[in-house]
Simulated scan of single mutants.
Amino acid sequence: MSSEDQGYYTKSVCQRICYTWTLKLNAITDLRSKHVSRHFPDYMESIAQFYLEAVWEGDYTYGNINISLRTVCKSDCTNKTKYVNINILNHEKKKSELLKLSDDWKMNMGSIAKYTPNGYFPNTLTIICEIFVISPVDKIMPIEVPKCKLFEDLAALFDTKKNSDVTIVTRDQHEIPAHKAILTARSDVFAAMFKHPMEENRRNSVTINDFDHDVLTEMLRFIYTGEAPNLADMVENLLAAAEKYGLDRLKAMCLKYLSDTLSIETAAITLKLADLYNVKDLQLNSVQFIRNHAASVANTANWQNLITTDKYLILNAFCEPTILLQLNDGSKNET
């Protein structure tokens, strides 16, 4: 438990004390006498010790049983006692009253509860007292934990090329310095390459003839930071790079972008990519979109090119049993 205060906070200990006191009252004279409980709690580790007083206030026909909570020792425990619950049980009437102590209560203000018999004097009263004593322990200066800068640090490492130990040579003969440890941690393909005594590992140089500088730079940026800010500009090539180097999240990011941006112009290309990488959900989305916009898609150059180069792909996609079943189920649900 703590509370902030001008740059530091106070660490406190909260002690819960419970005590049950049973009053046996044989006559009204017993009510008019002062009744005092034993001291509680018994154990020495307690922050404070208390006792209860019960006194009748009033005449012989009407009055209150005034219940007070007192401390045994003269200490500052009155300032530490924050909450007191009093539960009074009248066994004859099965009545229970729960009272909460106000925050500004002090021990010397006397009673904390009153019980009014209303003309019926009980033989037995059970008073259940629950006290919460809060004691400050230390004032502690907070320790500031800086924000994690892993993303920024790895991005800076990629941009500055500091302490790089391997060079990536692109198809267009650009060189990109990198770090074997980062590539190994993020790609099983690179990890296997640097584990075995391959030529790339010996020369600390990896030639990648499949992709140009901009695509490999974006792929490496993803490896270092988990982000690909230029994905939209090179999604097809980046998808191929992600597939080759086992970057599943980057691949999923590319596929999601293709699905989210399906259009008249891109439908044919997206269908081809879905088939190439065997992504059934994207293939289903593409076929559904093409069926819904058949006339418009058929007039695009991408569709005409697909008919020329991959007519079997179109045949298989639109006749594939699983896709047809899902398309038919979707049509039934719409109607």
Rank of each mutant, 00 (worst) to 15 (best):
L247A: 01
C148H: 12
L231R: 01
K180Y: 10
A156H: 05
K149I: 09
D260V: 10
L250D: 08
K195G: 13
I182E: 03
D248Y: 08
A241K: 00
V206I: 07
I264T: 11
L258Y: 07
R171G: 04
L220P: 06
S187C: 07
N237L: 05
F158R: 13
G226F: 05
Y245M: 01
M141A: 11
A232E: 15
F151T: 04
D210R: 09
N237K: 06
M219K: 01
K180S: 05
N230M: 08
K256P: 10
D214S: 11
A242G: 02
A252R: 14
K251N: 08
F211Y: 03
L220Q: 04
T167N: 13
K162Y: 09
M253I: 09
A241I: 04
T270H: 07
M253F: 06
T160M: 11
H179Q: 06
I143L: 15
T270M: 09
I143E: 12
R171I: 04
G246R: 02
N230P: 02
A181R: 06
Y257S: 06
D212I: 12
L216E: 07
N237G: 08
I264E: 12
P197I: 09
P177S: 04
V215C: 12
V215R: 12
F190G: 00
L216K: 04
N204E: 05
H213S: 13
E152F: 07
I143Y: 12
E265Q: 08
A242D: 03
I168R: 01
Y224G: 00
Y257D: 02
L183A: 03
A240M: 04
K251Q: 15
T266W: 05
K161Q: 15
A242R: 00
K272R: 11
L238Q: 01
A185D: 03
P197K: 14
E265H: 05
T207K: 14
F190L: 04
A267D: 03
T167P: 06
D159F: 08
K162V: 15
R203I: 15
E144D: 12
F222Y: 13
T270D: 03
D188Q: 15
T266K: 09
E199I: 12
F158Q: 13
A242K: 00
I168C: 00
L255I: 03
L216H: 05
A178G: 12
V145F: 12
I176Y: 06
K195S: 13
T167G: 11
F151H: 14
K161R: 14
A242E: 00
R186N: 04
V145D: 12
V166T: 11
V235P: 03
K147Q: 11
M198K: 07
F151K: 11
T261S: 02
E227G: 09
A185I: 10
L239D: 00
D248W: 06
R186G: 03
P142S: 13
A191L: 05
P142H: 12
E199W: 10
H213K: 14
A155G: 09
K195W: 10
G226A: 01
A155E: 08
I168T: 02
E236D: 14
A240S: 11
C148I: 13
A192V: 08
M253W: 02
A156S: 10
F158Y: 11
